[in-house]
């Protein structure tokens, strides 16, 4: 299907134009998700897309699905309610780096630990864009943000590693520069039973870029191209050599019991004991 047709199919075109700045990477991430959703075979009327608060979380408004734009950080908690109450629904969460790793960090850990069948797409643009450029847990060390006017002293949080450790079934990281593999990861994540995470490194030229000598979308893409290291290659590099770089690729793909299926067994057990 041509992109225009896909847009007509998956988007609420009447809600356009979107709020994202020129050069913002979020449109690329959403485009990748749209193509993955198209290929997934998900029935649109049985798919709910949930988001938190922030630039990326506005995406739910544009998508022609049942959509739930929730409170800051809580998308996964709302989504858990949706999925557990009706496990027949496909549930996708769109979240940002601040949304998922700071205010929503606990929900992220426990959604992964439960391995509930939700696909989470993290639009990681390294910054709080909606509020004007404050640092997030994903802001690279030694970069600049409006709340780190003397340079950023905190270490960057690796959300993919966190998801792996917490027990997610599928974890991958891509970038808006490597857009085709990004969309393929998303497709695999959508089809994977259990908790799946795709972290998409996206660019915010307006707030992150301008403060860090990358004030255009092109420069942000260049940065992604230069900093991304495929997993197979990264395995052979030392920590020193990986400094300032990040790993891309499929980082975890395992099969574990899924939460709503396990709860289905609880229901059976409770009803049998009753009899």
């Amino acid at each position: 299907m041509a992109t225009e047709e896909l847009l007509d199919e998956h988007f609420r075109v009447e809600t356009m134009p979107h709020i994202w700045c020129p050069g913002c990477g979020h449109g690329i991430v959403l485009g990748a998700l749209m193509r993955a959703l198209e290929k997934s075979g998900f029935e649109r009327d049985k798919t709910v897309i949930v988001s938190g608060i922030g630039c990326s979380s506005r995406a739910t408004g544009y998508l022609d699905y049942d959509t739930l734009h929730t409170t800051h950080g809580r998308a996964l908690a709302f989504a858990t309610g949706v999925k557990l109450a009706n496990p027949e629904l496909n549930v996708v969460v769109i979240t940002g780096d601040g949304d998922a790793s700071a205010i929503g960090g606990n929900h992220f850990i426990h959604a992964a630990r439960r391995n509930i069948d939700i696909t989470t797409i993290i639009f990681n643009n390294s910054i709080y864009g909606m509020t004007g450029g404050q640092y997030s847990p994903e802001t690279p060390e030694a970069s600049w943000a409006t709340t780190s006017p003397y340079g950023h002293i905190e270490r960057t949080f690796d959300l993919a590693e966190l998801a792996k450790a917490a027990g997610a079934s599928y974890v991958a990281r891509g970038t808006t520069y490597h857009v085709n593999p990004l969309s393929n990861y998303m497709l695999k994540a959508l089809k994977k039973k259990g908790f799946s995470v795709v972290e998409a490194i996206s660019g915010c030229p307006t707030y992150f870029g301008r403060k860090n000598k990358m004030p255009t979308g092109t420069l942000m893409l260049q940065w992604q191209k230069d900093s991304a290291v495929p997993r197979t290659k990264a395995d052979k590099l030392s920590a020193e050599e990986m400094k300032g770089k990040f790993v891309i690729g499929e980082l975890q793909d395992i099969d574990l019991p899924e939460y709503t299926e396990e709860y289905g067994k609880v229901i059976k057990k409770a009803q049998e004991r009753r009899r």
Partner: peptide
């Protein structure tokens, strides 16, 4: 749920499914 905030969020999500 993992906390009170998440509990409140989850009941809202569930209610939206009916």
């Amino acid at each position: 749920m993992e906390d009170e905030i998440a509990s409140m969020a989850a009941v809202i999500g569930a209610s939206l499914t009916g």
